[in-house]
Design a protein around this nucleic acid. Structure first.
Lengths: 188, 188
DNA sequence: AAAGCATTGTACCAATCGGTATAGATCAAA
DNA sequence: TTTGATCTATACCGATTGGTACAATGCTTT
């Protein structure tokens, strides 16, 4: 039979969008086979654990991307530059608020229980890495609190941007957060 | 047959919690009959439109509560007092972040489409009412922007509080928002 | 070219899905 | 006490659910 796409990593982004749009329980295998153009055979070949393994793989993929592109630079790179890069990457990743945060969406309902460790770690490591950069960028005392404020702002902006169907919400909030962190827009 | 609870309004809070926990697609009729102790007969008697009507009724109920307890006072009441009352009511309603915002959760996925008008109106009217109170409380120029910031902060705090399973996130964010709005904690 | 693993489509499964139909039970008003 | 509306429980419907089984095909290695 035809061997077409067939890289496990190729389908992860498609699965991610599905889970974002329909949630874990709402994403049916029928939906998945349609979108990925993969039969159940292929699907269960790549993900023997079924839907749960698919979602876990997607979350790990996302977590890995953030770790590589955002957290590590914040921890180890030049603070001002990595802070600016974070905001730019966040804006790009969430497509100015048109895309939602899968981990945030899962966190709100019972789905959180299945992936609690991943979800908690994603936000905890983000906050710690961000606080580390802020501390080295002139916010010694309130770094953890300011970092929390930034994560809250991003997640809230995603919710509100979707609710109002307005990218401006996300852009404005990113602007405010940048200012609060002392990140000039030019240095992006 | 036994006529037990049988007030349409009695089951709305139960339905609300179910939709919060499982999302619209994830909330099955089996789940609903268990939690409400109502058979399908009763359910379809109260809500001939099925699941969709149940969710719509829940959303309208929530929207009505916010309109009555929060938006109207913000628009028509004494600004400082109604602002303080808003934060207190929000804290109580969302149980310090342990409860999630159904409208925010629906907004993130495809479910938004079904209830777009309600979801958009809920946040729009909240922002406008809040801006009205802020304007009369010494934030004439940036009232709409500050109001947006408050809604973003609340929604984001709900997401993060669930993700980290930490009520402190919600409490701290409410504190920050109160300060930004010039609401003293004592005046609650 | 033969073998053997990797990949794929399809048929199938029991369970559950949202929804309908309907008969039995309860109650207020006449 | 009868009547009619309201409420409730249950059986049932076709469709879909997540998942399994397996045979057919591709590709790589020998």
């Amino acid at each position: 039979m035809a061997r077409l796409v067939a890289e496990r990593s190729d389908v992860l982004p498609l699965l991610g969008e599905l889970f974002r749009e329909h949630g874990f329980e709402g994403t049916s295998l029928a939906l998945i086979t349609q979108r990925t153009r993969l039969g159940k055979g292929s699907l269960y070949h790549f993900f023997p654990g079924g839907k749960e393994e698919m979602a876990a793989a997607v979350l790990a993929d996302i977590d890995g991307w953030f770790e590589r592109e955002i957290y590590a630079p914040l921890r180890e790179g030049e603070p001002a530059a990595s802070l600016a890069a974070m905001f730019a990457n966040v804006d790009r990743y969430f497509r100015s608020g048109r895309r939602s945060c899968l981990l945030g969406a899962f966190a709100l309902g019972v789905t959180r229980g299945r992936f609690a460790v991943t979800i908690d770690g994603y936000f905890r490591r983000w906050q710690e890495a961000l606080a580390s950069a802020l501390r080295r960028n002139g916010h010694s005392g309130e770094a953890m609190e300011l970092a929390e404020e930034v994560l809250v702002g991003i997640q809230g902006a995603l919710v509100l941007a979707h609710a109002r169907q307005d990218e401006g919400v996300f852009q404005r909030e990113l602007g405010r957060l940048r200012r609060r962190c002392g990140v000039s827009v030019q240095s992006v």
